[in-house]
Design a protein around this nucleic acid. Structure first.
Length: 779
DNA sequence: GGAGGCCTCGGAAGG
DNA sequence: CGAGGCCTCC
């Protein structure tokens, strides 16, 4: 006990030992926030607090998993019984038990964002509303923010401000949509992500006995990443801890990067107001980074007006200055980074996993990947499509969802005709219409398809009855077969397995493998009772097995991809700055530091937005332990167009003392090798090809032959080195691998950066950076 | 009902 | 650019 407290510094120890009453810990980047939280929980347990009475809420599954594991190492087996997880998973567990109180079935389905959007689309179609005015994502965002601010559809309808808002923005029927959406979810026995929070709030508000029960149970409540919580989360936490008031929140306002999703620093301020006897601890010593990195990050975040007073410092070495590198193209940027990683790894004897490349948008990963691949540097891209977001996985899971809850409308729509069984869109529409006019769900209609007046032809009714019989047979098997047996049964009897097995294309094979991987995961669950969710293992049921509905409870909330691919973990990490939160690397590269990209032009509507972008940059910088490199490029392909770029204002905000500007490409001779990066013979792109074909035939030129990019003959790309820009004259014909033959319209700039505007028939004017576009002059 | 052409539009992201 | 949606044609 004494032993492990001695591993903490003074403020950390105080924060750990002050266990009673409301506590707020403001923890700067790299100050050992997770460490304090885990030690605090372990400390509580060593003091004799029963782990059943501790509730710890995190923002991501990953954070919960890791913390639970670390507490396990400090405090032993007992950690398994902690209530630790994300807000959503913990409240879903509570609602599984209590759903009946608020009018939901206990086997309710959890709708993911796709399900929600699809339901909104269906509702829009039924009401003949235009999905441009009522964009499903905006409608969902509006409904979501209402629920996150504790408003039901009734409250929304009665709120004149909101209604006026919608009237002014030309969406007067939003309140109706909210109502229909809520009722449809209810009818389907489904909750969306926001409902898990909102319904928990309703439960605790309307049922004092429930509130009392959970207040009594959770004697100690801890919240991680408090700056990322939204209003409903804050209110629930406050309610649950009202009995004992042993509530501890940990956060850093400088790392709040989810304000656009409703998180607010206001929660931190309200917290101080709501708990007058609050004890606040500040952890300001950074253990992660060098003085240069801490200083540079401080100098940037200082530009934000909206922040709590805090001075992060470090006793670590000075370290190297922040390196700023300028590239001429996005591909050269990738190449510079790849070479730098190679060099640094050699010079400092590091592992690949000591490096991370961070960027603002996922689209930037492509050029980085290509550059790393060229140097044979292993890498891993985080983000992208998660395992559970894949179509084939969702298809099989939809059948499993139906076995558990056949009223689930989104699951029905997904698989009623997959694999094809002759029930088309028209039939589904009729079912929806029939259900809409009654209290019945689509499933109820389908069960009695012959008695309902749906206008569906007799033959189709038979097919529907077959489908119903199949789903019912799955439902009957549910309690008596273990999850794996039933899931395999479903996979083969639904026809899904056959569908993918017959598909021998590479995609088909990968779909089949993914299905197998899902089944393996279910087998693991059946045998051991564990999933990747940090929930306690599922117990065996009365029949001595673990069933599919137990599995399905966990799986809906698993959104992070846990695919470990092959065993090689020594890889460079590529991810967005958002994903990097909470991680650390010896060396970090931040790529694409250009104005309009980072900060992103799309999210720059106000000063608050700029400040959030700056906090994001701060998060990215503070991931680095030893060395930080920031890169930008003067040109970049964006949606097929070459655009000019300027360095980000954030680079200038780094105090000059911490910066080392390196001259452009003088550092290496790779500029030559990045020639030709732009010029794929992109006739392979169907749309581009069609456009060009059209333009060529209009101009009576010979028809184009389709060339696949990988087999494009190099000879087309005659090297053209414009030592003298005057070699190129307006009116001269130019052949470019990507765009075909065009005429130079005008030239600007000086070697090596001069640009030409070239007219390509059918494609209009293209700006080319001649230095990096391989051209062939056809006089 | 599936394949393919054409058009629009997105951009960062937790559960 | 490229994913996803809609329309058309077999």
């Amino acid at each position: 006990m004494e032993n492990y407290l001695s591993q903490l510094n003074d403020p950390q120890q105080q924060a750990v030992q002050c266990t009673e009453g409301p506590v707020m810990i403001i923890a700067g980047a790299g100050s050992g926030k997770t460490r304090v939280l885990t030690y605090r929980i372990a400390h509580l347990m060593k003091q004799g607090v029963d782990s059943f009475n501790i509730l710890a809420l995190t923002f991501t599954n990953k954070a919960a998993r890791e913390m639970k594991q670390r507490i396990g190492m400090l405090a032993g087996e007992d950690a398994r019984n902690l209530w630790m997880g994300t807000f959503h998973s913990v409240f879903a567990r509570i609602l599984r038990v209590e759903a009946a109180r608020i009018g939901y079935p206990n086997n309710f389905t959890i709708y993911d964002t796709d399900d929600s959007k699809s339901l909104i689309k269906t509702i829009l179609k039924e009401n003949n509303l235009d999905d441009k005015t009522y964009k499903p994502s905006s409608v969902l965002a509006r409904i979501s923010s209402a629920k996150n601010n504790l408003l039901s559809w009734r409250d929304y309808r009665d709120n004149t401000d909101l209604m006026n808002d919608d009237m002014l923005s030309g969406r007067p029927r939003l309140a109706e949509l909210f109502e229909m959406y809520s009722k449809r979810c209810m009818k389907s026995g489904a909750m969306d992500f926001d409902d898990l929070l909102y319904n928990t709030y309703v439960l605790l508000k309307n049922f004092p006995d429930e509130l009392h029960k959970y207040q009594h149970k959770f004697k100690y409540v801890l919240v991680d990443e408090f700056q990322d919580t939204n209003y409903v989360q804050y209110v629930i936490v406050r309610k649950i801890s009202a009995q004992h008031e042993n509530i501890c929140v940990v956060g850093d306002d400088a790392q709040s990067i989810y304000a656009f999703r409703g998180a607010n620093i206001r929660n931190i301020l309200s917290f101080e107001k709501d708990y007058p006897d609050l004890k606040t601890f500040r952890l300001e010593q950074n253990y992660r980074s060098t003085k240069s990195i801490v200083g540079a990050a401080n100098s940037v975040i200082r530009h934000n007006k909206n922040q709590l007073r805090k001075e992060v410092w470090t006793a670590n070495d000075q370290g190297e200055k922040i390196r700023v590198l300028r590239a001429l193209s996005d591909n050269e940027e990738g190449s510079i980074i790849a070479h730098a990683i190679f060099q640094e790894k050699m010079n400092h004897q590091l592992r690949h996993s000591d490096f991370a490349v961070l960027y603002r948008t996922n689209a930037q990963s492509r050029s980085l990947e290509e550059a790393l691949r060229r140097l044979n540097i292993p890498y891993r891209i985080y983000g992208g499509m998660s395992f559970y977001a894949r179509k084939e996985i969702k298809d099989l899971l939809a059948y499993c969802r139906l076995a558990v809850n056949p009223h689930d409308e989104e699951a029905i729509k997904r698989v009623i005709n997959y694999p094809a069984r002759g029930i088309g869109q028209a039939t589904v529409d009729k079912l929806i219409v029939a259900a809409a006019g009654s209290q019945k769900s689509i499933w109820n209609i389908m069960e009695n398809i012959r008695e309902e007046h749906t206008g569906i032809a007799g033959a189709t009714c038979d097919k529907i009855s077959d489908f119903v019989a199949m789903i019912k047979s799955f439902g009957i098997m549910l309690p008596v077969h273990d999850a794996y047996n039933l899931a395999s049964h479903i996979a083969s009897h639904s026809g899904i397995l056959r569908e993918f097995y017959q598909d021998k294309t590479p995609e088909g094979v990968s779909h089949y493998e993914n299905i197998q991987e899902l089944l393996n995961g279910i087998r693991e669950f059946s045998e051991a009772g564990t999933t990747a969710l940090p929930a306690p293992s599922s117990e065996l049921n009365e029949s001595g097995i673990r069933t599919l509905d137990q599995f399905m409870q966990d799986i809906a909330l698993l959104t992070d991809s846990e695919n470990n691919e092959d065993g090689n973990t020594d890889r460079v990490s590529l991810m967005t700055a958002h994903m990097a939160k909470g991680l650390e690397f010896k060396q970090v590269f931040i790529a694409g530091m250009e104005e309009n990209l980072f900060p992103s032009q799309m999210s720059m509507h106000s000063r608050e937005d700029l400040e959030e972008e700056r906090r994001l940059f701060y998060v990215a910088m503070t991931r680095a332990e030893q060395k930080l490199t920031v890169t930008y490029s003067v040109s970049r392909y964006r949606w097929g167009n070459l655009i000019g770029c300027e360095p980000s204002r954030f680079i200038e905000e780094i105090h000059p003392d911490y910066i080392e500007m390196t001259l452009p490409s003088s550092q290496m001779q790779t500029a030559e090798s990045s020639w030709g990066d732009f010029d794929l013979a992109d006739n392979s792109h169907p749309r581009l090809f069609a456009k060009r074909k059209n333009a060529f035939s209009k101009n009576n030129l010979k028809p184009l032959k389709k060339i696949h990019s990988s087999s494009a003959p190099d000879s087309i790309a005659e090297n053209f080195t414009p030592d003298d820009p005057n070699q190129i004259l307006a009116g001269m014909e130019v052949e470019h691998q990507k765009f075909g033959t065009g005429k130079v319209v005008n030239i600007e700039g000086n070697f090596p950066d001069h640009k030409a505007t070239v007219f390509f028939p059918g494609l209009g004017n293209k700006q080319l950076l001649l230095r990096y576009a391989r051209l062939k002059i056809v006089r």
